Lab assay of single mutants.
Amino acid sequence: YKIYPYDSLIVTNSISVKLPKDVDRTRLERHLSPEEFQEVFGMSIEEFDRLALWKRNDLKKKALLF
């Protein structure tokens, strides 16, 4: 996945969300650098992957990456 800054990946309720063209809309968190991922989620990507799907989705919603 290509890395993008968190600010360019957050999704708000506005209709005209302009995400970069090559971003996987269903896995926005994968486009964060490991350092920024840790900062946003408070855990590593590996720890995040071990969580239940509902928990990952809940965290993504709170981080505006859903």
Rank of each mutant, 00 (worst) to 15 (best):
F37V: 02
K62I: 09
L51P: 00
S14V: 11
A63K: 09
Y4T: 01
E29F: 01
D49E: 11
Q38G: 11
E47F: 09
K62L: 09
P34S: 12
L32A: 00
S14F: 07
E47H: 09
V40Q: 06
I15S: 15
L19D: 04
D49W: 05
R56C: 02
S44V: 13
F41N: 00
R50N: 11
R56S: 04
D58M: 13
L59I: 05
R27E: 05
S33D: 07
R50L: 14
R56E: 02
A63I: 03
K21D: 15
R56G: 03
L19F: 10
I45Q: 08
K2V: 14
E39A: 13
T12N: 09
L9E: 01
A52P: 15
R25M: 12
N57P: 01
Y1R: 12
K62N: 09
K61N: 06
I3M: 06
S33V: 04
I15W: 05
L59D: 01
V17N: 15
K21F: 10
R25K: 12
P5W: 03
E47K: 09
H31I: 01
E29C: 02
A52E: 14
R50G: 12
F37C: 03
L53I: 10
V11H: 08
R30Q: 06
L65D: 02
K2P: 15
F37H: 03
N13V: 08
L65Y: 01
D22N: 07
E35K: 13
T12C: 12
L64T: 04
V11F: 09
A52I: 08
K60R: 06
S8Y: 14
W54A: 11
E36M: 05
N57I: 15
D22G: 08
V17Q: 15
L64A: 08
D58H: 12
L28Q: 02
D24E: 06
W54F: 09
E29H: 02
S14L: 12
I45R: 09
F37Y: 02
L53G: 09
R25E: 11
K2G: 08
A52K: 09
L64V: 04
L19R: 06
I45N: 08
K55L: 12
D49F: 06
E36T: 07
S8I: 13
V40W: 04
E39Q: 14
L19G: 06
K62S: 09
A63Q: 04
K60G: 01
I3S: 06
W54Q: 11
L28W: 02
K21Y: 12
L32T: 00
K2A: 14
S16Y: 09
F48S: 00
K60T: 02
A63N: 07
F37K: 00
V40H: 11
P20Y: 04
V40F: 04
Y6M: 03
L32C: 00
E46G: 11
S33N: 07
G42S: 12
N13R: 10
